[in-house]
């Protein structure tokens, strides 16, 4: 089945078509239904998060009471303060913020750059290289971990952030693949036009394709930021100085082998995730705006 787009005919303005009373009612019904579904799913998703909050407010003795209680009495708000001072979290917040910002900026730039090449340009060996790139994502990291560690050790990078940051400047399979797919949905008319006008590919990438891809780039940015913010095994493997540790490693301070101070771990986990939630909330418009190719380009 080859899918061809239905040819657009007339563009009516305002409300969708058939503004009769019944279709309005149907539309309203559909929206109410969608809203109800959204609320339902939200509750399912929030349940565990609320449970974390509840645990974070419990006393040591209350954490595993059975049957579990939802509302701790009295709520131990000081758990948040205790947790914050249970490990050098202020320092770790600075470390993690710098680390995540650098990796995010590098990832967005490098991956979109490479993805543009794979999506929009023709050159010999492109598809083979793309296949190799995908394959590199499919080899489990645990068998390349030790040789990679030895490599970074030989470079003298172990104990620094270099092994964690430098590779992000060279594009990763996952997000390059994602952006390539996205770029492939961006129609070629604009770039062709720019090319005819003599624009360089660099210019087309930066000024034509990138602005159109804002939601996708924002998605890459938030996923990378979140992934880096929460990364644990990498920083732990390569950093040898407690002063350089990241937030996720810091959370481990609450665990002693089999014993865990759950209430502090939960409180600290909530504090650690707050910045990501805040950033996500604040930068939302980038997920939905920018894709202005509707109408203007097409039709």
């Amino acid at each position: 089945m080859s899918l061809s787009r239905p040819t657009p005919t007339v563009k009516p303005s305002g409300l969708p078509v058939g503004s009769t009373a019944t279709s309005r009612a149907l539309l309203l019904l559909w929206r109410v239904l969608a809203l109800a579904l959204l609320v339902g799913i939200s509750l399912l998703i929030l349940y565990p998060a609320l449970w974390m909050l509840s645990t974070a407010l419990k006393s040591d003795a209350q954490v595993f009471t059975y049957p579990p209680v939802w509302i701790p009495s009295p709520p131990q708000w000081h758990n948040f303060v205790d947790a914050w001072y249970g490990a050098p979290f202020t320092r770790y917040t600075i470390n993690t913020t710098l680390y995540a910002l650098v990796v995010t900026a590098a990832t967005v730039l490098a991956n979109s750059f490479v993805a543009y090449g794979f999506a929009k340009l023709r050159f010999p060996g492109r598809d083979v290289m793309f296949a190799v790139m995908l394959a590199s994502m499919m080899i489990p990291g645990m068998v390349t971990m030790i040789p990679q560690y030895i490599l970074f050790s030989k470079l003298g990078w172990v104990g620094t952030y270099l092994p964690l940051v430098v590779p992000s400047f060279f594009a990763s399979a996952f997000f390059t693949f994602m952006l390539r797919q996205y770029f492939l949905t961006v129609p070629n008319e604009l770039s062709e036009a720019a090319r005819v006008d003599g624009a360089s590919e660099l210019w087309i990438w930066w000024r034509v394709v990138m602005p159109l891809a804002t939601p996708a780039l924002a998605t890459v940015a938030i996923f990378t930021f979140d992934g880096t913010w929460n990364s644990y095994v990498g920083p732990l493997l390569y950093l040898n100085d407690e002063k350089l540790y990241t937030l996720q490693v810091g959370l481990q301070f609450f665990r002693n082998g089999s014993q865990t101070q759950w209430q502090h771990l939960m409180a600290a986990s909530l504090l650690v995730m707050l910045p990501v939630v805040a950033i996500f909330f604040a930068f939302q418009k980038y997920f939905v705006e920018g894709a202005s190719l509707s109408g203007s380009v097409k039709g």
């Binding site: 971990m145 030790i146 560690y149 030895i150 050790s153 030989k154 172990v158 095994v233 732990l236 493997l237 040898n240 100085d241 407690e242 490693v249 481990q252 301070f253 665990r255 002693n256 082998g257």
Partner: peptide, 23 residues
Amino acid sequence: YTFVPFDQIQTKTLASVAAKNPP
């Protein structure tokens, strides 16, 4: 002294031994 989380201390030590740069 460096704190290394319990669940990773064996792996981290192993990697450092393999790279001939252990604690």
